[in-house]
Amino acid sequence: MTTKKMAIIATKGTLDMAYPPFILASTAAALGYEVQIFFTFYGLQLLRKDLSDVKISPLANPAMPMPIPMPVMVQMLPGMESMATMMMKNKLKDKGVASLEELREMCLEMDVKFIACQMTVDLFEFDKAEFIDNVEYGGASMFFGFAGETDICLFV
């Protein structure tokens, strides 16, 4: 049986959008896939050692279930983003959903390869010292070298 392969492009840096790449990558790795995730633009935030800045905003996010209906004028007040993030993290914990840190660690344990977009690092003047160690830096061509031979390729 030849090893199946999956490539994911992670472009978002919010709490809700951080989950799909790590959930799918860890699951695929558990199923025996060889997996690479290419982190670009805001997705690079998911490679920081400290993930506390990865948040969810209720603003312009009408699909987010809220305990009480909240007018947009209220959602934009200072502190609402932190509150929504705290509520979401508590909910995730209550329901036994892994933290982002735990899922990311599991991906690494199962040899999921993380590639950071060098162009975005330069664009946003990110400090590589703030990223976790197990990251390779590369560009689109490097990603296609792997993505071109995958069975599944996803853009998140």
Binding site: T27, A30, L31, E109, M110
Partner: peptide
Amino acid sequence: GLSCPLPIVKTKKSLTDMTSGQVLKVIAT
């Protein structure tokens, strides 16, 4: 108490140090 994908991912991890033919019991909610 664990939700997707942890039961599967950790089942895979539990199987890693077992030998062929051995049986793993998994309890999930």
